[in-house]
């Protein structure tokens, strides 16, 4: 199954939850925010959120800025 993460196609296990995907990819769970198909998913809901083929994820994080 493929999902889009920040504009790039990424392979993901079918039926994987968002929480598992974050863990599998090694993203820093406590430091990122995820939008799934333009809706912010709060961290506590990641475990209930099952990914589907073609889902579009935006994963954002903090960088230096003024």
């Amino acid at each position: 199954m493929q999902v889009t993460v920040n504009g790039q196609l990424v392979q993901a296990t079918p039926e994987i939850s968002l929480a598992e995907l974050v863990k599998e990819k090694g993203w820093q769970a406590e430091r990122i925010v995820v939008e799934l198909n333009d809706v912010i998913i709060s961290r506590t809901d990641w475990v209930h959120c099952i990914m589907k083929q073609g889902d579009k994820l935006e994963v954002v994080t903090f960088v230096g800025g003024g």
Binding site: I32, V33, T61
Partner: peptide, 10 residues
């Protein structure tokens, strides 16, 4: 302290 928000570099 200010920071900015950007797409994570995967």
């Amino acid at each position: 302290v200010t920071v900015a928000l950007r797409r994570m570099d995967i």
